[in-house]
Amino acid sequence: MGNRTLVIGIGNNSRGDDGLGWACLDRLAERPLGAWQLEYRYQLAPEDAELMAHFPAVLFIDACASALPGGFSLEPCPPDPGAGLYTHQQTPGAVLHLCRELYGRQPQAWLLRIQGHKWTLGTGLTKAARSNLKQAVAHLFQYFQEPLAACPGPTFLAQN
């Protein structure tokens, strides 16, 4: 897998705007930038730590219920030792922490959050969510002119 980038979309496209993470992957698949590996997830689980240990860079994409300026945010995502309390429903930071602890790897990681508005049963995004998605994808392609793996700083720790 070498210099590939792992992109994980989190959500459920049967719950309205919770499908934003998967919809974003669909957009990336239409216009791939470099060597991306796309993974669709309902939720993160401990085995994702094993998967991301094979990649130098990871991008998480998830819907967000909170208000975000411009409808999305893209931020670095550090390992979070204090977040892994829910066993088979993990946060990105908790899985990165597991990855570091179990496999001695710390991929460069980002979290793209896209604001959603409606979370009830049903497929399809709201108009506002679709607009936020469009802005987020445009920003993503602009920000990452190169594959994420080319960004500086994938850290490999001593295997323990």
Partner: peptide
């Protein structure tokens, strides 16, 4: 209680945790 979760298991017995993850992955 903060220890009683899968991350706690991973910290306490890394070999057990690594095997558990790969066993689940095999079935998946």
């Amino acid at each position: 209680v903060a220890l009683r979760n899968v991350v706690g298991v991973a910290m306490a017995d890394k070999e057990l945790a690594r095997k558990g993850i790969l066993m689940r992955k095999f079935g998946q």
